[in-house]
């Protein structure tokens, strides 16, 4: 591979990583508060449509972006309602959310298939884009990619440097203790789920506003599930989520370029790569956790466990 091709590959990897990173961070917030949300795939699908339709109707990509985020928060609010208020099983509720979200996105979106939007376009950041290597890879992207650069820092700051983040983490570890300390674990969990949903929604919005500029059904294409896997890979740490997302964007971009270079490997095998990699990555991080004996401390202790009412 020539240096130009490698730069192009890395730039494509960054683009591919952006929606996955948004969703991974969103899921991380939710899980840190103790709520497993398997609905990410559905949330991304629906918010991609919400972002598209608002951008299409108003002509404003920024409004579309917020619409995507709010649609994500709203749908995750449903998950919070089912799990927090009605004490439903988090795994099944998440799956239901995915089925519902993907279906709703297809249902509402079918009449608009093939309609284009302006969305976000690429623009080069002055000065920075002329850096060797880093410039073309990082700073000739669209506005949402620049936004995603801030997201891990923001999530890290929220979780580790604010009292709200402390409360969230406490709720995810030991809700009873959090309640004893005068916090409201129910409200904190709802916040974590919905704020996470907002981020997942941004990931969905990225797909329709920045990635394709074109609406179609099935836009999320399994990215939401990859995000759920990456949270585990990242040991619930925003920094490692960046690495995981880049790895995925990279593999996807790599397999397409391998084909463009004229490989003889059948395409079914190449398309398997991202999914096989997810399993391998999980195995790898699990093995590492086992070896270092850090596995159990990484996952929030009360993850997936609903808060039972007294009496």
């Amino acid at each position: 591979m020539s240096p130009e091709l490698i730069i192009a590959l890395l730039a494509a990897a960054v683009q591919g990583a952006a929606p996955i990173l948004f969703a991974t961070l969103g899921e991380m917030l939710s899980e840190k508060a103790g709520v497993l949300n398997l609905g990410v795939e559905g949330v991304m699908a629906l918010s991609a449509f919400a972002a598209f339709i608002v951008c299409h109707l108003t002509g404003s990509a920024v409004l579309g972006l917020f619409a995507g985020g709010f649609a994500g928060a709203l749908l995750c609010g449903l998950h919070a309602l089912v799990c927090q208020v009605f004490l439903g099983n988090q795994v099944v509720s998440g799956l239901a959310l995915t089925i519902f979200g993907v279906g709703l996105s297809d249902f509402l979106g079918t009449p608009y298939v093939g309609v284009g939007t302006e969305g976000f376009r690429q623009f080069a950041v002055p000065l920075l884009s002329h850096l060797p290597m880093l410039g073309p890879v990082l700073f000739r992207q669209d506005a949402m990619v620049y936004l995603v650069y801030c997201a891990p820092v923001a999530v890290w700051f929220l979780l580790n440097r604010t009292s709200l983040g402390l409360g969230l983490r406490a709720t995810g570890e030991m809700p009873a203790a959090a309640a004893a300390a005068g916090l409201n674990p129910q409200r904190l969990r709802a916040f974590g789920v919905m704020a996470g949903g907002f981020l997942c929604g941004l990931g969905g919005a990225y797909l329709s506003l920045a990635h394709t500029h074109l609406w179609s059904t099935g836009l999320s294409g399994g990215r939401g599930w990859v995000a759920v896997a990456l949270v585990i890979f990242a040991f619930w740490r925003p920094g490692r989520a960046v690495i995981g997302a880049l790895l995925f964007g990279g593999v996807m971009a790599f397999q397409l370029r391998l084909q463009a270079e004229g490989t003889n490997v059948p395409s079914s095998l190449l398309l398997m790569l991202p999914y096989a990699l997810t399993v391998i990555v999980l195995v790898f991080s699990a093995a590492r956790a086992k070896y270092l004996k850090t596995g159990h401390s990484a996952a929030p202790a009360a993850l997936g466990v609903n808060i039972e009412p007294e009496g």
């Binding site: 559905g42 449903l78 309602l81 089912v82 208020v85 009605f86 004490l87 439903g88 099983n89 099944v92 509720s93 799956l95 239901a96 959310l97 995915t98 089925i99 519902f100 979200g101 993907v102 279906g103 709703l104 996105s105 297809d106 249902f107 079918t110 059904t217 009412p309």
Partner: peptide, 27 residues
Amino acid sequence: QIPAAFGQIMEGAILLCVIAGQFFLSY
């Protein structure tokens, strides 16, 4: 001319409502 995805929505909605409803079975 209703998209086939409508079936999925119904599956999802029924499941969500039933999960929520099951609350009343145990509480």
